[in-house]
Computed example of a mutant assay.
Amino acid sequence: LALDRLPISLVAAIEFVGTIGVALVGLRSRRNVAALAIAVAGTLLLIDIKWSSDPVGLFWAFLNGALFVGYIVLGHRIAQTGIGITGLGTAMAIAFLVVLPVGFSEALPAFSAPQLLVAAIGVGICSSVIPYICDQLAMARLPRASFALMLSLLPLTATLIGVIVLRQVPSLTDCLGIALVVVGVAMHKPAQE
């Protein structure tokens, strides 16, 4: 809903604000504050923020960011209990049942086209199952602040996918942003929470 009304760079920036907050809460050293600042600077270079005066779009973007923070905090707690992947499977089954009545009619054409059905399953596995399992494995081993900082790699991976899949060659500014994100993440030293 936010993307229908706002540029993707602004939606990504608003989503990233929450992860910065989560990372800031867990910072325990000047080195990690510097690492976060460098990663944030690199991310801002990558996402090229352009503000909007669309209050409805901004509402959805900030709601998305707040829900993403909830995902990090709750996901980390669940991962620390040791039931991370099992809990994730249960949560995905519940989400499927909640969304099914809304999305079933939209998905109906895919059932009559095997190619669409295979593509839908592939997208579901690649965009939800694999990343969320990886998140749970990482959350079980990393402090919450470290995991939140690692999320600054998302614009970097999007840029790299843009190069490989879409043949979108990054600008010099993009390359500088990528370098800053990598340096910031490499500088970060996880602390026990």
Rank of each mutant, 00 (worst) to 15 (best):
V98M: 03
G89I: 02
L67S: 11
G103R: 02
P55N: 07
Q136H: 12
L88Q: 03
V22T: 05
I47P: 13
L116S: 00
L97N: 08
G87Y: 05
L58Y: 14
H76V: 08
L88D: 03
R77C: 07
Q80W: 07
L44A: 15
V123I: 00
V73E: 06
V33G: 06
I85M: 05
G124H: 03
P131T: 00
D135W: 08
T43C: 15
A119M: 02
S29Q: 09
H76M: 07
V123R: 05
A41L: 15
T81D: 09
Q136F: 14
V56W: 15
A120M: 01
G70E: 13
L88M: 05
A119K: 03
F62C: 14
G26L: 05
Q136L: 11
P114D: 01
S105M: 11
R28W: 09
I83N: 11
A66I: 14
G21K: 02
I83L: 12
A93G: 08
K50P: 12
F68A: 15
A119Y: 01
I78S: 13
V40N: 07
S127L: 01
P131L: 03
Q115H: 11
L116G: 04
I94H: 07
A66S: 15
V22Y: 03
V22Q: 01
S52C: 14
V73L: 13
V69I: 09
L58R: 13
P114C: 02
I78N: 11
I72P: 04
A110P: 02
A113D: 01
I94N: 05
A61D: 15
D135A: 02
D54N: 15
W51L: 15
R77Q: 13
I49H: 10
G84P: 05
Q80M: 13
V98W: 02
W51P: 15
S127W: 02
P109L: 06
G65P: 12
G89Y: 06
A23S: 03
V33W: 14
G124D: 00
R31S: 03
G70W: 10
N64K: 14
F59I: 14
I133L: 05
L100M: 15
I133S: 04
V129A: 06
G103A: 13
I72F: 13
Q136C: 06
G65K: 09
R30D: 00
T81Y: 08
D135L: 03
Q80L: 11
A66R: 10
A119R: 03
I125E: 05
V102G: 07
V99H: 14
A107M: 11
V118N: 03
L117F: 04
V33M: 10
A41W: 06
G21A: 00
P131M: 05
I49D: 08
A23W: 05
P101H: 11
P109V: 04
P131E: 09
W60G: 15
K50S: 14
L27M: 14
A93D: 02
Q136R: 07
A79Y: 06
V123C: 02
T86E: 07
P55F: 12
S53K: 13
